[in-house]
Design a protein around this nucleic acid. Structure first.
Length: 477
RNA sequence: GCUCCCAUCGUCUAGCGGUCAGGACGCCGCCCUCUCAAGGCGGAAACCGGGGUUCAAUUCCCCGUGGGAGCGCCA
């Protein structure tokens, strides 16, 4: 594979937990970089001090690591284009602000947030799109100085050129055209001196050598602003691709209200990273042919990742389909992957039987809670029986369980021997033989193969189960 | 309000003017099997509405409808 200059990035703001939407964005960027032998960069957009926190930043990075989305450049990984926290890059931005001001492509704006809010309100009331009215766009030096003397601290606004059209090719949606007269002058530096999103997001992509950006479609209409900035500063422009929206059950953008899960929640519930990534990769990207339904590792997903296979239509997050991938992932998982599930078993399950328990029920479970439930069924007390299970036990009759109990000692741990002995004593075979045993021993009419489960079950627990079944079989409903 | 994006089975999608509109997941059935699952085989299931262009439209154009985005000193 030849080295390339492809570099993608994931640039979250550390203001909260990572959710499925940004996870998918991170994934697509990582896959694009890997598919072309490039690099995947992490940058933290934390210029909003009131909303950002170091704790959230640490959690974001831990989430990415847990998912296997390791970054090649960025915080804790190093690189030549740091710092990778935007809050630490004020000095980097300073020269670009000066350049824009010197060329009169940016100007100080003394309007207060209150004034701006009222202006937007008035424009909306008049049926017009809210846009900066240009109050400070043409102040004289004296006017600016007077405002400073009054104690006003200005923001810095970018002066959008008039009567032009910004054209760019979107990796997902093709050619896009935006007349600049639809774009008002926008803030690039806050009054407190910190960089605003439009500025630092674009400038950092250029300075960090980012070549491709896949991001949410909400940024499609922001792209002309950023391209104008990069052009004004004579900085390279990355190729942008605006990927499709993920929706919840109700068709609205996915959020906590309609089904989104945080990475923390996924982890807590026992979803495997491989399952989540295989599903998210197919939520907005199409995998063709045999790999369509195969569980792939990260590199496998990357190998088949193509920007021309990215979808435009919103895609609905479907927990059932995610479950399908969980099933495949659990089946394929090695012991190390499922080791945390053993740790969650309660004390009823002896430490030296846990791995055997997992092996016995593995084809039958999706989550650590399922494993724990089977641990209870094998080593602990049974929950109340369902009516269909009781019916099976009654149908078998007390004699059936009497026969099983008689053979219990001689067949301890050996289910085929138990089944053979009960068949011989009662004449029951096939379903009529196995189902009553299953119902009595596990309390269910379905589940994993009985042999390994019975082998694990302590003999006194098996006896107790069979005795309870014999009693129940003698009753009438 | 203005501008922009989007619309194919229940869900994810293939399609880029002529296809019995294909695949996957889910669902149903059969095989395998003590049951559940896995695996194999099969089945049901979709082009938002109207108009136009064309010999021919899911596909190209227009309008509508529905969904969404941007127009923040959030990102």
């Amino acid at each position: 594979m030849t080295p390339t200059n492809v570099k993608t990035r994931f640039a979250p703001s550390p203001t909260g937990r990572m959710h499925l939407g940004n996870l998918r964005t991170a994934l697509f960027n990582a896959l694009l970089a890997r598919s072309r032998g490039g690099r995947f960069l992490l940058r933290l957009e934390d210029t909003d001090e009131s909303r950002s926190s170091g704790a959230h930043a640490q959690t974001l990075m831990a989430d990415l690591r847990w998912m296997g989305l390791h970054w090649d450049e960025g915080p804790e990984a190093g690189g030549e284009a740091g710092p990778y926290h935007q809050s630490e890059r004020g000095a980097v931005y300073e020269r670009y602000y000066r350049a824009l001001e010197a060329a009169d492509q940016a100007y100080p704006c003394f309007c207060t947030e209150r004034e701006l809010e009222l202006s937007r309100k008035a424009q909306r009331a008049a049926g017009k799109p809210p846009r900066y009215a240009g109050t400070c766009a043409h102040l004289t030096a004296e006017e600016r100085e007077r405002r400073r003397a009054e104690g006003r601290r200005p923001t810095l606004r970018f002066r959008v050129p008039a009567e032009e059209t910004v054209v760019f090719h979107d990796l997902v949606r093709g050619e896009q055209r935006f007349p600049t007269d639809e774009i008002g002058d926008f803030i690039i530096r806050r009054a407190d001196g910190t960089a605003a999103f439009f500025f630092c997001n674009a400038v950092d992509d250029a300075l960090m050598g980012v070549s491709h950006v896949l991001r949410g479609e909400d940024h499609l209409t922001n792209t002309p602003r950023q391209l104008l900035l990069l052009r004004a500063l004579d900085l390279p422009q990355p190729e942008y691709g605006h990927i499709n929206l993920i929706t919840g059950d109700d068709g609205a953008p996915l959020s906590k209200r309609n089904g989104s899960l945080s990475v923390a929640e996924l982890r807590e519930a026992g979803w495997l990273p491989e399952a989540v990534l295989n599903y998210l990769a197919r939520l907005g990207h199409h995998y063709t042919g045999e790999v369509e339904s195969q569980l792939l590792d990260l590199q496998g997903l990357a190998d088949a990742f193509r920007t021309d296979a990215l979808g435009r239509a919103p895609a609905r997050f479907d927990r059932h389909q995610l479950s399908h991938w969980q099933q495949l992932a659990v089946h394929r998982a090695d012991e190390a992957t499922l080791a945390p599930w053993l740790e969650r078993l309660d004390d009823a399950v002896p430490a030296d039987r846990r791995r055997a328990l997992l092996a016995a029920v593995r084809d039958n479970i999706l989550f650590p809670d399922d494993l724990a439930a089977w641990g209870q069924r094998v080593f602990g007390p049974l929950p109340a029986l369902a009516p269909d299970t009781e019916a099976v036990i009654r149908d078998a009759g007390p004699a059936f369980y009497e026969a099983a109990l008689a053979e219990l000692e001689t067949t301890a741990g050996d289910f085929p021997a138990l089944a053979k002995a009960v068949r011989k004593a009662t004449g029951a075979k096939g379903r009529q033989l196995f189902m009553p045993l299953r119902a009595a021993l596990t309390g269910l009419c379905r589940g994993p193969e009985l042999g390994p489960v019975y082998a694990l079950m302590p003999v006194d627990i098996a006896r107790c189960r069979l005795e309870q079944a014999r009693e129940l079989a003698a009753t009438t409903p």
